[in-house]
Design a binder for these strands. Structure first.
Length: 360
DNA sequence: TATACGTGGAG
DNA sequence: TCTCCAAGTAT
Protein backbone atom coordinates (compact mmCIF):
# COMPACT_ATOMS: atom_id res chain seq x y z
CA UNK A 1 0.00 0.00 0.00
CA UNK A 2 1.30 3.40 -0.89
CA UNK A 3 0.51 6.71 0.69
CA UNK A 4 0.51 8.82 -2.42
CA UNK A 5 -0.40 12.40 -1.69
CA UNK A 6 -2.73 14.55 -3.72
CA UNK A 7 -0.40 15.95 -6.31
CA UNK A 8 -0.81 19.13 -8.34
CA UNK A 9 -1.00 16.99 -11.44
CA UNK A 10 -3.82 14.78 -10.22
CA UNK A 11 -5.81 17.76 -8.99
CA UNK A 12 -5.60 19.27 -12.46
CA UNK A 13 -6.86 16.27 -14.39
CA UNK A 14 -10.60 16.78 -14.09
CA UNK A 15 -11.13 20.14 -15.87
CA UNK A 16 -9.45 19.32 -19.19
CA UNK A 17 -10.73 15.73 -19.08
CA UNK A 18 -14.36 16.76 -18.53
CA UNK A 19 -14.09 19.38 -21.26
CA UNK A 20 -12.84 16.68 -23.60
CA UNK A 21 -15.65 14.34 -22.50
CA UNK A 22 -18.27 16.98 -23.23
CA UNK A 23 -17.12 16.92 -26.86
CA UNK A 24 -16.11 13.29 -27.36
CA UNK A 25 -18.17 11.08 -25.05
CA UNK A 26 -19.16 7.84 -26.70
CA UNK A 27 -22.89 7.33 -27.17
CA UNK A 28 -23.82 4.12 -25.40
CA UNK A 29 -27.23 2.53 -24.74
CA UNK A 30 -26.81 2.61 -20.96
CA UNK A 31 -25.25 6.04 -20.74
CA UNK A 32 -26.73 9.46 -19.98
CA UNK A 33 -24.87 11.86 -22.26
CA UNK A 34 -23.10 14.81 -20.62
CA UNK A 35 -25.54 17.09 -22.43
CA UNK A 36 -28.63 15.27 -21.16
CA UNK A 37 -27.19 15.20 -17.67
CA UNK A 38 -26.70 18.93 -17.84
CA UNK A 39 -30.41 19.21 -18.65
CA UNK A 40 -31.39 17.25 -15.60
CA UNK A 41 -31.65 13.71 -16.94
CA UNK A 42 -30.64 11.26 -14.23
CA UNK A 43 -29.19 7.78 -14.65
CA UNK A 44 -31.31 4.70 -13.99
CA UNK A 45 -29.39 2.69 -11.34
CA UNK A 46 -30.80 -0.56 -12.75
CA UNK A 47 -29.39 0.12 -16.20
CA UNK A 48 -26.07 1.31 -14.76
CA UNK A 49 -25.79 -1.83 -12.65
CA UNK A 50 -26.81 -4.18 -15.46
CA UNK A 51 -24.35 -2.61 -17.90
CA UNK A 52 -21.50 -2.67 -15.39
CA UNK A 53 -21.99 -6.37 -14.68
CA UNK A 54 -22.11 -7.17 -18.38
CA UNK A 55 -19.05 -5.07 -19.09
CA UNK A 56 -16.83 -6.91 -16.60
CA UNK A 57 -13.95 -8.23 -18.73
CA UNK A 58 -16.19 -7.87 -21.78
CA UNK A 59 -16.07 -5.49 -24.72
CA UNK A 60 -18.65 -2.76 -25.32
CA UNK A 61 -19.41 -4.27 -28.72
CA UNK A 62 -20.21 -7.68 -27.25
CA UNK A 63 -22.43 -6.21 -24.53
CA UNK A 64 -24.67 -3.94 -26.62
CA UNK A 65 -27.06 -6.54 -28.04
CA UNK A 66 -27.32 -8.41 -24.72
CA UNK A 67 -28.06 -5.20 -22.86
CA UNK A 68 -30.86 -4.32 -25.31
CA UNK A 69 -32.44 -7.75 -24.94
CA UNK A 70 -32.28 -7.66 -21.13
CA UNK A 71 -33.76 -4.19 -20.65
CA UNK A 72 -36.52 -4.84 -23.16
CA UNK A 73 -37.45 -8.13 -21.52
CA UNK A 74 -36.82 -7.07 -17.92
CA UNK A 75 -37.17 -3.26 -17.75
CA UNK A 76 -36.72 -3.00 -13.96
CA UNK A 77 -34.86 -4.82 -11.23
CA UNK A 78 -38.19 -6.09 -9.93
CA UNK A 79 -38.93 -7.61 -13.32
CA UNK A 80 -35.58 -9.36 -13.26
CA UNK A 81 -36.21 -10.58 -9.73
CA UNK A 82 -39.53 -12.03 -10.87
CA UNK A 83 -37.91 -13.78 -13.82
CA UNK A 84 -37.09 -17.46 -14.01
CA UNK A 85 -33.40 -18.12 -13.35
CA UNK A 86 -33.21 -20.51 -16.29
CA UNK A 87 -34.52 -17.81 -18.61
CA UNK A 88 -31.87 -15.39 -17.36
CA UNK A 89 -29.12 -17.95 -17.91
CA UNK A 90 -30.41 -18.58 -21.42
CA UNK A 91 -30.46 -14.87 -22.20
CA UNK A 92 -26.85 -14.67 -21.01
CA UNK A 93 -25.66 -17.63 -23.12
CA UNK A 94 -22.68 -16.69 -25.28
CA UNK A 95 -21.60 -13.71 -23.20
CA UNK A 96 -19.27 -15.76 -21.00
CA UNK A 97 -18.32 -15.73 -17.32
CA UNK A 98 -21.62 -17.32 -16.37
CA UNK A 99 -21.21 -16.77 -12.64
CA UNK A 100 -22.03 -13.16 -13.49
CA UNK A 101 -25.49 -14.24 -14.63
CA UNK A 102 -26.09 -16.31 -11.52
CA UNK A 103 -25.00 -13.42 -9.30
CA UNK A 104 -27.01 -10.95 -11.39
CA UNK A 105 -30.16 -12.87 -10.57
CA UNK A 106 -29.21 -13.22 -6.89
CA UNK A 107 -28.51 -9.52 -6.70
CA UNK A 108 -31.82 -8.61 -8.31
CA UNK A 109 -33.65 -10.89 -5.88
CA UNK A 110 -31.88 -9.26 -2.95
CA UNK A 111 -32.53 -5.70 -4.11
CA UNK A 112 -36.18 -6.52 -4.74
CA UNK A 113 -36.86 -8.33 -1.48
CA UNK A 114 -34.57 -6.53 0.97
CA UNK A 115 -34.59 -3.02 -0.44
CA UNK A 116 -37.95 -2.77 -2.17
CA UNK A 117 -36.38 -2.58 -5.60
CA UNK A 118 -34.13 0.37 -4.72
CA UNK A 119 -30.38 -0.05 -5.07
CA UNK A 120 -28.14 1.00 -2.17
CA UNK A 121 -26.53 4.36 -2.92
CA UNK A 122 -23.21 3.91 -1.15
CA UNK A 123 -20.13 2.00 -2.18
CA UNK A 124 -20.33 -0.06 0.99
CA UNK A 125 -23.97 -0.95 0.47
CA UNK A 126 -23.39 -1.88 -3.16
CA UNK A 127 -20.25 -3.85 -2.37
CA UNK A 128 -22.26 -6.19 -0.16
CA UNK A 129 -24.36 -7.39 -3.10
CA UNK A 130 -23.54 -10.54 -5.15
CA UNK A 131 -21.36 -9.90 -8.18
CA UNK A 132 -20.45 -6.37 -7.12
CA UNK A 133 -16.78 -5.95 -6.26
CA UNK A 134 -14.65 -2.86 -5.57
CA UNK A 135 -14.70 -1.59 -9.15
CA UNK A 136 -18.42 -2.08 -9.79
CA UNK A 137 -19.45 -0.62 -6.43
CA UNK A 138 -17.42 2.52 -7.11
CA UNK A 139 -18.66 2.77 -10.69
CA UNK A 140 -22.35 2.49 -9.77
CA UNK A 141 -21.96 4.91 -6.86
CA UNK A 142 -20.28 7.47 -9.10
CA UNK A 143 -22.32 7.05 -12.29
CA UNK A 144 -25.76 6.44 -10.82
CA UNK A 145 -25.53 8.45 -7.59
CA UNK A 146 -22.84 11.09 -8.13
CA UNK A 147 -20.72 9.80 -5.26
CA UNK A 148 -17.06 10.86 -5.69
CA UNK A 149 -15.81 7.27 -5.53
CA UNK A 150 -12.41 6.17 -6.84
CA UNK A 151 -13.33 4.14 -9.91
CA UNK A 152 -10.44 1.97 -11.11
CA UNK A 153 -10.84 -0.38 -14.05
CA UNK A 154 -8.31 -1.62 -16.60
CA UNK A 155 -8.59 1.53 -18.69
CA UNK A 156 -8.01 3.79 -15.73
CA UNK A 157 -5.07 1.70 -14.55
CA UNK A 158 -3.47 2.17 -17.95
CA UNK A 159 -4.13 5.92 -18.03
CA UNK A 160 -2.75 6.50 -14.55
CA UNK A 161 0.33 4.30 -14.88
CA UNK A 162 1.20 6.46 -17.88
CA UNK A 163 0.32 9.80 -16.31
CA UNK A 164 2.59 9.04 -13.34
CA UNK A 165 5.01 6.53 -14.89
CA UNK A 166 4.11 3.95 -12.26
CA UNK A 167 6.56 1.13 -12.79
CA UNK A 168 5.21 -1.20 -10.13
CA UNK A 169 3.77 -4.20 -12.02
CA UNK A 170 0.02 -4.76 -12.03
CA UNK A 171 -1.84 -5.91 -10.05
CA UNK A 172 0.48 -4.85 -7.20
CA UNK A 173 0.19 -1.21 -8.27
CA UNK A 174 -3.56 -1.17 -7.74
CA UNK A 175 -3.65 0.41 -4.25
CA UNK A 176 -1.29 3.16 -5.36
CA UNK A 177 -3.42 3.84 -8.42
CA UNK A 178 -6.62 3.88 -6.39
CA UNK A 179 -5.17 6.54 -4.12
CA UNK A 180 -4.16 8.70 -7.07
CA UNK A 181 -7.55 8.31 -8.73
CA UNK A 182 -9.20 9.26 -5.45
CA UNK A 183 -7.15 12.45 -5.35
CA UNK A 184 -8.04 13.27 -8.94
CA UNK A 185 -11.78 12.63 -8.62
CA UNK A 186 -13.79 15.86 -8.44
CA UNK A 187 -16.80 16.44 -6.20
CA UNK A 188 -18.70 17.72 -9.22
CA UNK A 189 -19.54 15.20 -11.95
CA UNK A 190 -17.64 12.23 -10.47
CA UNK A 191 -19.63 9.86 -12.69
CA UNK A 192 -18.75 11.73 -15.85
CA UNK A 193 -15.15 11.87 -14.65
CA UNK A 194 -14.99 8.09 -14.34
CA UNK A 195 -16.68 7.55 -17.69
CA UNK A 196 -14.39 10.12 -19.28
CA UNK A 197 -11.31 8.26 -18.05
CA UNK A 198 -12.69 5.01 -19.41
CA UNK A 199 -13.53 6.58 -22.77
CA UNK A 200 -10.06 8.10 -22.87
CA UNK A 201 -8.51 4.71 -22.20
CA UNK A 202 -10.71 3.01 -24.80
CA UNK A 203 -10.23 5.52 -27.61
CA UNK A 204 -7.04 7.55 -27.02
CA UNK A 205 -4.87 6.02 -24.30
CA UNK A 206 -5.09 2.57 -25.89
CA UNK A 207 -2.87 -0.40 -24.99
CA UNK A 208 -0.98 -0.17 -28.27
CA UNK A 209 -0.10 2.96 -30.23
CA UNK A 210 -1.88 5.46 -27.99
CA UNK A 211 -2.99 8.62 -29.81
CA UNK A 212 -1.17 11.02 -27.52
CA UNK A 213 -1.46 13.88 -30.01
CA UNK A 214 -5.22 13.86 -29.42
CA UNK A 215 -5.05 13.50 -25.64
CA UNK A 216 -6.37 16.31 -23.43
CA UNK A 217 -3.92 15.27 -20.69
CA UNK A 218 -0.76 15.02 -22.78
CA UNK A 219 1.04 17.94 -21.18
CA UNK A 220 0.64 16.49 -17.70
CA UNK A 221 1.51 12.93 -18.71
CA UNK A 222 4.94 11.81 -17.50
CA UNK A 223 5.14 8.92 -19.96
CA UNK A 224 4.17 11.13 -22.89
CA UNK A 225 6.78 13.70 -21.91
CA UNK A 226 9.49 11.03 -21.78
CA UNK A 227 8.20 9.25 -24.88
CA UNK A 228 7.72 5.99 -22.96
CA UNK A 229 3.92 5.75 -23.15
CA UNK A 230 3.98 2.25 -24.60
CA UNK A 231 6.11 0.97 -21.71
CA UNK A 232 3.14 1.27 -19.34
CA UNK A 233 1.41 -0.39 -17.66
CA UNK A 234 4.01 -2.86 -16.45
CA UNK A 235 2.40 -6.25 -15.94
CA UNK A 236 3.36 -9.40 -14.11
CA UNK A 237 4.44 -12.16 -16.51
CA UNK A 238 1.72 -14.49 -17.71
CA UNK A 239 1.65 -18.20 -17.18
CA UNK A 240 1.41 -20.61 -20.05
CA UNK A 241 -1.94 -22.25 -20.58
CA UNK A 242 -2.08 -25.98 -19.92
CA UNK A 243 -3.86 -28.23 -22.41
CA UNK A 244 -6.72 -30.39 -21.21
CA UNK A 245 -8.41 -33.18 -23.09
CA UNK A 246 -11.99 -34.30 -22.91
CA UNK A 247 -14.89 -35.76 -24.79
CA UNK A 248 -18.38 -34.57 -25.70
CA UNK A 249 -21.21 -36.88 -26.66
CA UNK A 250 -23.85 -36.18 -29.27
CA UNK A 251 -26.62 -38.70 -28.72
CA UNK A 252 -29.10 -38.48 -31.59
CA UNK A 253 -32.53 -40.01 -31.50
CA UNK A 254 -34.21 -41.44 -34.59
CA UNK A 255 -36.16 -38.22 -35.07
CA UNK A 256 -33.00 -36.14 -34.95
CA UNK A 257 -33.42 -34.84 -31.39
CA UNK A 258 -30.17 -34.50 -29.39
CA UNK A 259 -29.61 -35.15 -25.69
CA UNK A 260 -28.69 -32.10 -23.61
CA UNK A 261 -27.98 -31.81 -19.90
CA UNK A 262 -27.78 -28.97 -17.38
CA UNK A 263 -24.32 -28.48 -15.91
CA UNK A 264 -23.79 -28.09 -12.15
CA UNK A 265 -24.31 -24.55 -10.85
CA UNK A 266 -20.73 -24.12 -9.74
CA UNK A 267 -17.57 -24.25 -11.79
CA UNK A 268 -16.86 -23.93 -15.47
CA UNK A 269 -19.95 -23.08 -17.54
CA UNK A 270 -21.89 -23.46 -14.29
CA UNK A 271 -25.65 -23.59 -14.61
CA UNK A 272 -25.57 -23.73 -18.39
CA UNK A 273 -26.97 -26.32 -20.76
CA UNK A 274 -24.62 -28.46 -22.79
CA UNK A 275 -23.78 -31.83 -24.26
CA UNK A 276 -22.85 -34.66 -21.91
CA UNK A 277 -19.07 -34.56 -21.51
CA UNK A 278 -16.23 -36.24 -19.70
CA UNK A 279 -14.40 -34.36 -17.00
CA UNK A 280 -11.91 -31.86 -18.36
CA UNK A 281 -9.69 -31.91 -15.34
CA UNK A 282 -7.86 -34.98 -16.54
CA UNK A 283 -4.60 -34.54 -18.34
CA UNK A 284 -3.74 -35.95 -21.69
CA UNK A 285 -2.57 -39.19 -20.09
CA UNK A 286 -5.75 -39.72 -18.08
CA UNK A 287 -8.72 -41.89 -18.87
CA UNK A 288 -11.05 -39.98 -21.09
CA UNK A 289 -12.60 -40.35 -24.49
CA UNK A 290 -15.24 -42.95 -25.10
CA UNK A 291 -14.89 -44.47 -21.63
CA UNK A 292 -16.60 -41.35 -20.27
CA UNK A 293 -19.77 -41.83 -22.32
CA UNK A 294 -23.02 -41.22 -20.41
CA UNK A 295 -24.35 -44.65 -21.47
CA UNK A 296 -23.52 -47.49 -23.77
CA UNK A 297 -24.12 -46.95 -27.46
CA UNK A 298 -22.43 -47.25 -30.83
CA UNK A 299 -20.27 -44.17 -30.25
CA UNK A 300 -18.13 -43.07 -33.17
CA UNK A 301 -15.77 -40.16 -33.07
CA UNK A 302 -16.90 -37.56 -35.60
CA UNK A 303 -14.43 -34.81 -34.94
CA UNK A 304 -12.13 -32.93 -32.63
CA UNK A 305 -12.47 -29.31 -31.60
CA UNK A 306 -10.23 -26.93 -29.76
CA UNK A 307 -11.46 -24.15 -27.51
CA UNK A 308 -9.43 -21.70 -25.47
CA UNK A 309 -10.69 -20.71 -22.03
CA UNK A 310 -9.08 -18.13 -19.82
CA UNK A 311 -6.80 -20.54 -18.01
CA UNK A 312 -6.53 -23.60 -20.23
CA UNK A 313 -6.91 -24.87 -23.75
CA UNK A 314 -9.42 -27.63 -24.26
CA UNK A 315 -9.16 -30.31 -26.91
CA UNK A 316 -12.47 -32.04 -27.14
CA UNK A 317 -13.14 -35.29 -28.97
CA UNK A 318 -16.70 -35.33 -30.26
CA UNK A 319 -18.53 -38.66 -30.33
CA UNK A 320 -21.85 -39.38 -32.03
CA UNK A 321 -24.32 -42.21 -31.77
CA UNK A 322 -27.87 -42.87 -32.92
CA UNK A 323 -29.85 -44.25 -30.02
CA UNK A 324 -33.31 -45.68 -29.41
CA UNK A 325 -35.45 -45.63 -26.32
CA UNK A 326 -37.15 -42.92 -24.29
CA UNK A 327 -34.74 -42.52 -21.36
CA UNK A 328 -33.63 -38.89 -20.93
CA UNK A 329 -30.65 -39.80 -18.71
CA UNK A 330 -31.33 -36.84 -16.40
CA UNK A 331 -31.38 -34.35 -19.27
CA UNK A 332 -33.77 -33.69 -22.11
CA UNK A 333 -34.07 -34.30 -25.82
CA UNK A 334 -33.75 -31.15 -27.85
CA UNK A 335 -35.78 -31.33 -31.05
CA UNK A 336 -33.94 -31.38 -34.33
CA UNK A 337 -35.53 -28.21 -35.71
CA UNK A 338 -34.80 -26.11 -32.61
CA UNK A 339 -31.37 -27.40 -31.66
CA UNK A 340 -29.63 -24.51 -33.36
CA UNK A 341 -31.62 -22.08 -31.20
CA UNK A 342 -30.67 -23.67 -27.90
CA UNK A 343 -28.95 -21.28 -25.51
CA UNK A 344 -25.55 -22.95 -25.31
CA UNK A 345 -22.05 -21.82 -24.40
CA UNK A 346 -19.86 -21.33 -27.42
CA UNK A 347 -17.76 -24.40 -26.79
CA UNK A 348 -20.93 -26.54 -26.92
CA UNK A 349 -22.02 -24.94 -30.18
CA UNK A 350 -18.61 -25.75 -31.60
CA UNK A 351 -18.96 -29.39 -30.59
CA UNK A 352 -22.41 -29.63 -32.18
CA UNK A 353 -21.12 -27.99 -35.34
CA UNK A 354 -18.40 -30.61 -35.45
CA UNK A 355 -20.93 -33.44 -35.30
CA UNK A 356 -23.43 -31.77 -37.68
CA UNK A 357 -21.41 -29.77 -40.20
CA UNK A 358 -24.51 -29.45 -42.41
CA UNK A 359 -26.83 -28.10 -39.72
CA UNK A 360 -24.62 -25.46 -38.09
C1' DT B 1 -1.58 -13.40 -3.07
C1' DA B 2 -2.96 -16.79 -6.59
C1' DT B 3 -6.25 -19.16 -9.22
C1' DA B 4 -10.80 -20.06 -11.57
C1' DC B 5 -13.76 -18.16 -14.61
C1' DG B 6 -15.64 -17.24 -21.51
C1' DT B 7 -15.66 -15.08 -25.50
C1' DG B 8 -14.62 -12.71 -29.80
C1' DG B 9 -12.04 -9.02 -31.98
C1' DA B 10 -7.70 -6.56 -33.07
C1' DG B 11 -3.10 -6.37 -34.67
C1' DT C 1 -1.61 -18.51 -36.41
C1' DC C 2 -0.84 -16.26 -32.29
C1' DT C 3 -0.88 -13.11 -28.58
C1' DC C 4 -3.20 -9.83 -26.17
C1' DC C 5 -6.91 -8.36 -23.93
C1' DA C 6 -12.11 -5.92 -22.43
C1' DA C 7 -15.84 -1.27 -17.53
C1' DG C 8 -13.47 -7.85 -12.53
C1' DT C 9 -15.32 -10.99 -8.88
C1' DA C 10 -15.20 -14.90 -5.83
C1' DT C 11 -12.65 -17.79 -3.11
Amino acid sequence: MSSAKPSPISAGIAPPLLAWYDRHARTLPWRVSPEDREHGVVADPYRVWLSEIMLQQTTVQAVKSYFDVFVRRWPTVNDLAAADTGDVMKAWAGLGYYSRARNLKKCADQVATEFGGVFPQTEEGLRALPGIGPYTAAAIAAIAFDVPAAVVDGNIERVFTRLFEIDTPLPSAKPEITTLVGSATPDERPGDFAQALMDLGATICTPKRPACALCPLDEGCAARVSGRQEAFPVKAPKKTKPVRKGAAFVAERGDGAVLLVKRPDKGLLGGMSGLPTSNWTVRADGKTGISAAPFEAQWRQTGMISHVFTHFELRLEVFHAVVTGTDDYGGWWSASDSLAEEALPTVMKKALASAFPDRF
